[in-house]
Every structure is written in C-alpha cells, then in structure tokens.
Design a protein around this nucleic acid. Structure first.
Lengths: 206, 206, 206, 206
DNA sequence: GATGAATGAGCGTTCATTCAT
DNA sequence: GATGAATGAACGCTCATTCAT
C-alpha cells in the first residue's frame, strides 16, 4: 500500500518534470506568449488537464524556468584559491553571460521582460531583487580582492560594482538585440583587459 | 470649400492624436500585450473601426510611442567645436540616458521589450536596427576624436564602441530594474572618469 | 444654367460608368465577396460615399456587370453563308471554349463561381441569365440548320441545345479541374465527329 | 475505465455529428458565406469553441458535407449481372446526378467552387483528384462493356470517357445555373438514347 | 453631387481554464 | 491523479453603410 503511494508520488514528480522541460523547450523556441498550455501538454505527452494539476495558472510555470545558476557564481569565484583577482573577475563575468547564453535567447528575452520591473524573488531564503543580488555578488568579488590584499582599501567598491554589473547587463541586452550576433561571453575577457584593468590600476596593491 | 476641408483634416488629426495619447497612456500603464484595440478606442472615445482608419495594424501604433530623440545626439556632439573629446563623450552618454529618463520608466520598459528583439526601424530613410544605430553613433564619436587628433590611430574603435554602448544599455536596464533608483544620467560622468578615461590613456595623442 | 445642369448630368453619368467598370474589373479578378466597396471606389478614383450616390447597396452593382464576348458568337456562325451546318456548329463550340481559354483559367474559375448561382444579367436590353442566353444561342444554331434545310423539322431542338450546351460547360469545368490539361477547344471537333454527328444522323436532310 | 472512455468518445462523436448536421442545415439554407461559425454552434447547441474542437477552420466542415457517395457507383454498375451495357451506363449517369441533387443545390455549388481548382483528395487510400476519379470510373464502365463483349475492341475509351463525364459535369452546372430547373438526373436517359447510343453504334458487338 | 471620417456589428479564431468522468 | 471535451470571453480586424460638411 505504502509502496503504491510512493510509486504514485514518484510518477507524479516525473510528470511534473516532463511538463517543465516541455515548457522550457517550447518557450525557449517560441517565447512564452506564443506557447499555449495545450502545446506544452502535447509536448509533455499529458493532457491539458494535467497541466493544471501541477500549476494553478499558466504563468506559474515561468518560475520554474529561471533556473539560471549564476546565483552561486560569486561564491565559487571567491573560493578559488589558485586564481588571482583578475582571473576570478574574468571567470565571473564570462560565466555570467555564458549561463545566460546557455538558456537561450528566447528565455533571456523573457527574463529581461520579467526583470526590468523590479520583481522580488526568493533566493536562498532571502528576498531580493535580481539587481540587488547581482550587485551584492559583484561587491563581494571586489571586497574579496581587498581582503586578499590584491586591491587597496580605497577602491570605490559600490561604483565599480554598479558599472561592471551594468556592463554585463548591457552585453546581455546587446546579445538579444543583435539576435545573438554579439556574443557577450566571448567579449568579457577583452572588456576586462581593455577597459577594466587599466581602470583598476590605481587601486592595485604592491 | 478649402476651409471646410481643412477643418475636416484638422478634426481627423485631432482624432489621430486622441488615439495615440490614449494608446500611450494605456500601454504605459499596462503594457502593449495587455491593452486591446477596443480599450484604446474606448479611452480615445472613438469606435474600434476608427482605430483602423489611422493604423493598419495594432502594432503600428507602437511607432508613435517611441518619440525618443537621441537619433541626432552623436551629430550634435561631433559638431561641438569648443569641447574636447572627453566633454563630447560625456555629453553623449549623459544625454543618451537623460533622454530615456525623460520619457519615463514605463515607456522605457516598453521600449526595451520592443527592442530586445532585433526589429528593423527606419531612421532618416535608412533601415537599421536600434543597436546598429547606436553602435554607429558611438563609433563616429571615437572616430571624430581620431580625426581631430585627440586619439591615436591605433584606438580599437569597434571594441570600445561595443563596450561603451553596452554600458549605456546596462545603466538603462539598471534604472528600470531598480525602479529608477539608480539614475544612469547621473552616473555617466563618474563612469567616464573612473573607468573609461584610464582605459583610453594609452590612445591619447600628444 | 441649363448647360451647367447638362454638364453635371454628363459628368454624373461618367462617374457612374467609371464605378461600373472598376467594379467589373475587380470582381472579375477577385470575385464579388473579395472586393470591398472601398476597393471599387479607389479603382474608380471616387470616394466610397460616391458609390452610394449611384447604388443603394453593394449588391446592386452586380446587375451592371455581365458583358462577355461570346454573346454574338451564334449570330456570327449563323451568318456564315459559305459554311454548312457541321462547320457552323463546330465553329461555335470551338470558339466558345477558345474564348474562355483566352481569358485564362483564373478568371474562368471566378466566372464559374459567379455564374453557378443564377444571376440575372442584362444583355442587349433584355434580362436573361447566362444559361438562358447560351441555350437560346444554341437553339438558334440548330434552328438555322432547319431553316436552311440542313436538318429536318423533327429535330428535337430543345434537348439537343441542352445537351450540347452542357457538353461545353462540362469541358470548361474539366479544363479548370485539370488545371488546363484537358483543353476543351481542341476537343470540340472530335466531340462533334465522334458523338454529335452520329446522333444528328436521323435528322439529316436529303 | 474502458467503458467510461467509450462513453466519452461516443458523446464526442455525437457532438461532432450535431455540429455537422447543424452546418449542413444552415449552409443548405443560406450558403456557406452567409452562415457564421457562431450560427452553426448555436444551432448545434454547443459553444463556438467546441466547433474548433472538431474542425480546425470553418472551411473544414465543407468536407463533411460532401458525403456524396458516387465513389462506388461504377463498381456497383459493373457488378450488375442482369443489366446490359446500356442499362449500366444509364444507371451510372442517372445516379451520378441524382446523388448530387440529393445533397442539395447549395452544397453542390460549394462543391463546384471547391473542385474547379484541382484539389487532391483521398479516396479509398488513394490520392486522386475528383476529375481523375470520375474519368477512371467512366473508363471502367466502357472497358467492362468491352470485356463483356458488348462493345468492340476499337471503341475509343479515353475520348468517350472524357465526353460523357463532361456531359455529367455540364448537366450539374446547368442544374446550378438554372436554380435546379434543369434536372440532370431526369435528362440522362434521354441523353443516352438521343446522343450517346447513336454515337456508340459503330462499336456495337454482334 | 462629392467627400471621407466615423461607425459598430460582425467575423473567424484562440486559448486559459473547468469539470464530469 | 489523469483525462480531454467543453466553455465562452476576448481578440484583431473588416467593411457596408451613414452623414455632416
């Protein structure tokens, strides 16, 4: 008896996953507005009714799609013991954009649409906006540089965090606007070398 | 006879304007997708049919909403004879964002939604995308610096144009994401002094 | 004063004619349902309002439309003094289909669509349907044969007219259905020799 | 479980039938263009949405109306062992037109509109056009006559099939053009006796 | 007579959502 | 939990017709 319940739960979880990945696929390809619940159900090989077993409204599935994993990117970079500040910053910027490119242009566009209004989101039990999260992450990268003695105390952390983040957003937008012609993740190293490194020169330690 | 015709034309122009400002109001408040032609017509106090007297398709009204005038910004900057490169670039960046802020955050959000897909637009008889236009404008600023002997020949015009533009887009996005807390136009001078100027150092003439 | 009125009447008659021929052109090309009053007005270079000066309803213009050119085909055939009955009949049938083929398959299809409903048309001041007209024409061919003593009195004119006409319509339809592969005008002589001539045998004079 | 599904399927089939017969009724009475999907839905006592559960586009219901069953007419005729060639051919021709008359003039008109362009149709797993189908059927009637020794080998099967078929089409068109005054199915025997029989004389066996 | 802006009912179609089974 | 037929409001858009000028 108990086993059957478990089997049921497992199967339900699988159905849920199938729906999510079907939605992800179709929305990636066509955009949220151009995908109907029926489309998703068909792709997931379930009935439209089943969609509503798992999601109260069509929109609810959007939350499942933003599994963009740069949330821990700063932590990962900061924990790198064998890399210097330059490499850690370059890593973060590159991976930030690479992650976006990974999910595809349609979802990215959707994501921008959803995030240009300051929507609250729950990340690791803390309510922030996407902007705040990214800003804090970028600050922590710079502060880690100070903590490790790679940058001086006087470095204007707030402003740099703002500008570097803006640069990443800007490259993301450019990627969308050019239909993926301008590939941000390929530009970040160049950006670092050409623009950011010279600007950081005065705050270099040693 | 002529006078009567004129009156008719005047009234028609007024109707057209009423529709546009009704559309602007509603789309600003609710977003293009959430406003129907009927809504617009009702707000403008005309029939739905009348909307189609002035616009062939619903989308066509969008063009009327984007009355952002940075199209001549680069020209204006390049024609400044009493300003040096730094001032011209700072002027362009500041005005670019100020113009966006002028139209308001709601329309800006709409504008981003419309432009993250690479939509062709006609600017002064030439068909470009918004991205291309801004990229070319930024290049022309840098090239003017070279032409005037303020920057060396070796300056990587393409890359710099890409990055500076991305910065402007990024600040615009940040402005929207923070509900206008991060005011881009106030940051551009700082961006120039902190980030860009040091990066341009190696390409300085004289 | 009187002159001015006359000029007005003349100009009005011309406007009316322009509307009719514009309607004729467009409806021939696209079918009544697919042509709007505005289309007709535009083609006639008048305002939509003017259309309603001359026609109370859109449908009213249908009556003005039908002037196709095989209307005199029977007369021409009957006036041939140097041809016998066989040749006259063959001439009529061949030219009937050739005329249709001349205008092209698209217009022919349109024409069928317009004529399978029994639309009244005005031909030489007499109101008939297309069917009646063709039937009368075919009768006159047979009757001319009797009058000239080529056929006996006993020939069943009505039935023969019906069947020969139906044959012509049928070949026209086959031409359309086969995308012009079955070319009717090339078949009429064969039809005459194979089918009709033997059938007319009993009614041959002399 | 299976039973319940069956019930659902049965009810769905009934709904579908209700829609079809509502459409048939209204289109017969008023013509396809003058009946809206909403009209049909109302008559069938379902929602407009339900119409689209069963038919992708409004036009698609037309196919359901063409339940003209002359598809097996030739087979039936050819299998008649107690009838001679004359009777079989007369049967085919009469029933061909009777079948058309049975569905009604409105649907027939619609049917002609749809078939004067060479649309592919699937008849008993084979893709043909209506024209091809009828031509083949007519050939088979003639060939059966040869096979049974009622006609000689020399009979020009292709041409006769073309002309007889055209005659049937022509009578159908005449029926439509005269608003059902000229009743084709009543004329076919006469056509056979007056026209076709004399023409077949030379190919008679025995 | 001529104009053309204005009307508004009507159309075909979509689709998120419900609910009996 | 799963189904899929049924719903019906909503949409973008068309167009015959009117009428003040």
């Amino acid at each position: 008896m108990e086993k059957k319940i478990k089997i049921r739960q497992v199967r339900a979880a699988e159905t849920r996953k199938r729906i999510i990945s079907a939605a992800k696929k179709l929305i990636t390809e066509n955009g949220f507005e151009n995908v109907s619940v029926e489309d998703i159900a068909k792709e997931a090989e379930v009935s439209t009714g089943s969609f509503y077993t798992y999601f109260k409204r069509k929109e609810d599935i959007i939350e499942e799609l933003n599994q963009v994993n740069f949330y821990r990117l700063a932590e990962i970079a900061n924990e790198m013991t064998d890399k210097d500040f330059d490499d850690r910053m370059k890593y973060y910027c590159r991976e930030f954009l690479a992650e976006i490119e990974r999910v595809g242009i349609a979802i990215c566009r959707q994501w921008i649409r959803n995030n240009i209004a300051p929507v609250k989101m729950v990340i690791s039990d803390r309510e922030t906006t996407k902007y705040e999260h990214d800003y804090i992450a970028m600050r922590s990268l710079l502060e880690e540089g100070v903590r490790r003695g790679e940058l001086t105390d006087g470095v204007p952390v707030g402003e740099l965090a703002l500008f570097i983040n803006a640069q990443l957003y800007g490259l993301m937008v450019a990627w969308c606007m050019t239909d993926a012609s301008v590939i941000g993740s390929e530009k970040t190293d160049l950006f670092y070398e050409t623009i950011l490194k010279p600007a950081l020169m005065p705050y270099r330690q040693g």
